[in-house]
Design a protein around this nucleic acid. Structure first.
Lengths: 156, 156
DNA sequence: TGCTTGCCTGGAGTGCACTTCAGGGATCTA
DNA sequence: TAGATCCCTGAAGTGCACTCCAGGCAAGCA
C-alpha cells in the first residue's frame, strides 16, 4: 500500500472532518464539482482553488471544458488537510507534507517526523488549554458568587 | 472586593502565564520598566505599548520623565491577558472585557457571560484537538510500521 | 437568441496581531 | 562632553490565511 491520503478511497471511514460528509458517490462515479466539494468540506470554492495553486492538492481532474472534477480520493485528502489545519499546522507545513507525499515512499521517515512533531504540539496545546480552563473556572466562579451576592442584596 | 485583574496584588499566586515570574518586587517598590515587564511576560515592549494604545491595559503609571512604570497589579492583569490569549480569544474581545472591568461592578453579569462562552470554546477546542490526535496517531503508526517494513527489507 | 448559472483565471484586497521604522528625548558612565 | 543605553511617539509594514474582484467562457433553457 502507498499511503497518500487517509485510508483508501472507500466509503466514509468514521473519522471525518468538520461537516458531516456521508453522501459520497461510489468510486467511478466520483466526479464532484467544486461547489459540491465546497458544500461537503465547508471550504469555499476560492479556498479550494487556492489550495491547488499553492501545491496543497494533488492534480485535480478536469472536465472536457476545463472545470475541476474532484474524486473521493481528493475528498479523503481534504479531510486530512482539515484535520491538520485544526491542529494549527501552518499551511506551508501542509504543503511540505503534500510535496513529500508526491515524492513517494522514500519520504516516509520525514513524514513520520513531521506528524510526530505535530502530535507533540497538539499535546502541548491541549495542556495549555487545560491550564486556561483552570483560570477561567476560578474567575467564572468568582463572578457567579458575586452575582449571587448582588442578587441577594437587591432583594433585601 | 472588586475583581479587576486576577487575585489581588500579593506575591506570585501559582497560576502564572508563559515564562516563570516569581521575581516580583514587594508592593510599594513595584515600579517595573517596560523592558522588565517584557522580560517577565515574554511580550515585546512594542506589544505592551500597543496593548495600552488599543485599550487592553488600564492606565499605566509614568515616571517624572514620562516613562512607563508597571505595578504588580499590571503584571497580574497581563498574566490574565496572556491566559485569555492562549484560549484564542480575539484581542477585540479582550478589549471589551477590559472595558467592562473599567466600567465597574455592574458589568459582572456580562463578564460572567463572556468568560462562560470562552470556557465553552476552550472545551470544544480541546475536543477538536483530541480528535486530531486520534487521526495523527493512526497515521503515525502507519508510518512507523511502514518504516519497520522498509528497514527489514533493506537488511535482507 | 438572449439570459442565467456555474465555473475559469490572475491579481488585488482583507483582517488580525503584531513588528518595524523614523525621528527624537532623558539618564548614565567615562 | 561624548557616547551608549533606554525610552518615547505615530505611522507604515509584515505574514498568514484566506477572500473578493474583474473579465470571460460554456452549458442549459425559454
Amino acid at each position: 500500500m502507498t499511503e497518500t491520503t487517509g485510508e483508501g478511497t472507500g466509503a466514509g471511514t468514521g473519522t471525518c472532518a468538520g461537516p458531516p460528509q456521508g453522501d459520497r458517490r461510489p468510486d467511478g462515479a466520483d466526479r464532484y464539482t467544486i461547489s459540491e466539494v465546497a458544500a461537503l468540506t465547508g471550504l469555499s470554492a476560492h479556498t479550494l482553488r487556492w489550495y491547488e495553486r499553492i501545491g496543497l492538492m494533488p492534480h485535480i481532474d478536469r472536465s472536457h471544458t476545463g472545470q475541476r472534477r474532484y474524486s473521493n480520493r481528493d475528498l479523503d485528502w481534504l479531510a486530512l488537510v482539515g484535520k491538520l489545519r485544526l491542529t494549527g499546522m501552518p499551511v506551508a507545513d501542509m504543503v511540505r507534507y503534500a510535496e513529500m507525499v508526491r515524492e513517494g515512499d522514500h519520504t516516509y521517515a520525514d513524514r513520520f517526523d513531521l506528524l510526530k512533531a505535530t502530535r507533540e504540539d497538539v499535546v502541548a496545546r491541549i495542556a495549555e488549554l487545560q491550564g486556561t480552563l483552570a483560570v477561567l473556572d476560578r474567575k467564572i466562579s468568582f463572578y457567579a458568587d458575586a452575582g449571587r451576592a448582588l442578587a441577594s442584596e437587591r432583594s433585601r
